[in-house]
């Protein structure tokens, strides 16, 4: 477990990873904002600096961290072909949603990811847990494990997809210039690298966090008067 990670991907594995984590992959990421629409409405996130701080919180103390831990465990279970362990991780990950919309965000993307995989990579799709209550993080981790994609690479790619989703929502909502959004993503590099390293070694008991106000934002979004985003 502690040997130096192999970050060199076979071209076929890299091809899959790039496709699966692309904003064009049909998981519906464009419709989700992780509660940020409320945080913008409430004035919490109003510029690039406050967006960067909010994203750092999610990655270090919130859903970014927990999802990375679930992804890592799902990846290992898929590599080991341990369906029982994978089912237990899937169940815990699905139970983690602090609100209805955060559950929708995970389960809608998880189900869409599984459908897309079944359509184009049916052999890999067979490694996924059942589609009911399948979170995006667990689906992505299990697929990457079954597809020969190294854990480090899968974690970084998934975090990039998550950060890209929230930042692109913020660019529309605040609104921010495209360059501001890109600068936030560039500034997250160090956090993502640290998170990839620590989540890869974390025990399943280490999932968890403290982003209470992000949870409240997603609850408040349910009753927000005008909404561009589903979550």
């Amino acid at each position: 477990m502690t040997s130096a990670p192999d970050r060199t991907l076979e071209p076929a594995a890299l091809w899959r990873l790039l496709l699966w984590s692309s904003p064009a992959f049909p998981v519906g990421a464009f419709s989700h904002a992780h509660g940020l629409e409320w945080s913008v409405e409430a004035g919490e996130v109003s510029d690039a600096a406050s967006l960067l701080a909010w994203m750092e919180d999610l990655l270090q103390h919130g859903s970014g961290w927990s999802d990375a831990v679930f992804l890592a465990h799902a990846h290992r279970a898929a590599v080991a072909r341990d369906g029982k362990a994978l089912a237990a991780i899937a169940s815990l990950s699905a139970a983690f949603a602090p609100s209805l919309e955060r559950q929708v965000e995970q389960l809608a993307q998880g189900a869409a990811f599984a459908r897309a995989l079944a359509a184009a990579w049916p052999a890999i799709a067979e490694a996924l847990p059942p589609p009911e209550r399948l979170t995006y993080a667990v689906a992505f981790g299990a697929a990457a494990g079954a597809a020969g994609i190294a854990l480090d690479n899968a974690l970084t790619a998934h975090l990039q997809a998550f950060a890209g989703m929230v930042v692109s929502a913020a660019v529309r909502l605040v609104p921010l210039g495209q360059s501001d959004g890109l600068r936030v993503l560039a500034a997250l590099e160090r956090s993502v690298a640290a998170l990839t390293a620590s989540a890869g070694e974390a025990a399943i008991e280490d999932a968890g966090g403290a982003c209470f106000r992000a949870d409240i934002a997603s609850m408040a979004h349910e009753t927000q008067y005008t909404r561009l985003f589903r979550t």
Partner: peptide, 9 residues
Amino acid sequence: ILDRAAVAR
């Protein structure tokens, strides 16, 4: 940690 905006501000 509690000082952070998404945690407890």
